[in-house]
């Protein structure tokens, strides 16, 4: 009887482990599938290429259309990263000073752009932007990408700033440093990693953003995801996996200098 129960438990554990790894495998499937697909030879399209080649990558980097939208998306994402990180850090440090009750309420406002469906945000922004001539401009896209990138910064910086002891800042102030100096010389060095992380998330939020860009980019200022959207829906091309892989790597590459800079200090 006892032995039976033990065997039962062991089978149960094995089933549980199998289920756990199956689910993780299911979650990883898109990542695992897209990279090998990107090494397809020209013309043919296989899930696991028999003749792996860099042909698709060459085609991508030689295509002026794709390079144009890629550069545009990068420029937008860099601007968004700067704007969202600045605004988010300001918001998070103000929120950190509030009383707990006020804190929850104001935090909810700054986090709202992440909860409200992007179609709702896009439609309402499109209506007003159309009146002010902002549809189809880079400015319009940068502004709205910043709106949805700010929550990432507020979440990350908020939790980091709250764990910070106020003593150092007080010491700095009592030694005669102004708020800006205190912020740059005392706070920033302590929260550098969180700032780098926020920057990565903000960059990624903009670089990968589809719905707002679909509404706001117009025909002239298509971003990379908008062109990707068109390509996926209207032309099935073997170049797509290569672009996808590059899209996955760019946000990582953008943050690498930040991390290196930090490691050197």
């Amino acid at each position: 009887m006892h032995a039976f129960r033990r065997i039962g438990t062991r089978v149960g554990r094995l089933l549980l482990a199998a289920h756990g790894w199956l689910v993780i495998g299911f979650l990883l499937l898109p990542v695992a599938a897209v990279v090998p697909m990107s090494f397809n030879d020209l013309g043919v399209f296989e899930l696991i290429p028999t003749n792996p080649s860099l042909a698709q990558y060459r085609k991508l980097f030689e295509s002026p259309d794709w390079m144009e939208v890629m550069w545009r998306s990068m420029r937008i994402a860099v601007l968004v990263t700067m704007a969202a990180t600045t605004l988010g850090i300001l918001a998070a440090s103000a929120v950190a000073r509030l009383s707990p009750r006020l804190r929850a309420a104001t935090e909810a406002v700054f986090l709202a752009p992440q909860i409200v469906p992007s179609v709702v945000i896009a439609a309402s922004a499109y209506f007003l932007f159309a009146r002010f001539g902002l549809v189809g401009t880079m400015t319009g896209i940068v502004i709205m990408h910043t709106v949805i990138a700010v929550p990432f910064v507020v979440i990350l910086m908020g939790s980091r700033l709250q764990s910070l002891s106020p003593d150092m800042a007080q010491a700095s102030a009592s030694l005669g440093a102004g708020p800006l100096r205190t912020f740059l010389r005392v706070i920033v060095p302590q929260v550098g990693t969180a700032i780098a992380g926020s920057a990565l998330l903000a960059f990624h939020a903009s670089f990968d953003e589809v719905v707002l860009s679909l509404f706001l980019s117009g025909a002239r200022n298509k971003t990379l995801p908008v062109k990707l959207w068109d390509a996926i829906l209207f032309e099935v091309s073997p170049i797509l996996p290569a672009i996808s892989t590059v899209v996955m790597l760019i946000p990582l590459a953008a943050v690498l200098p930040l991390l290196v800079l930090r490691a050197r200090r």
Partner: peptide, 23 residues
């Protein structure tokens, strides 16, 4: 395990849908 589950978030939403179309 946590890292592996978080990894697909780095992959573009469009690309994840695209892979499902292909599969």
């Amino acid at each position: 395990a946590i890292g592996l589950i978080a990894l697909p978030f780095m992959l573009s939403v469009l690309v994840r849908n695209y892979v499902w179309m292909v599969l």
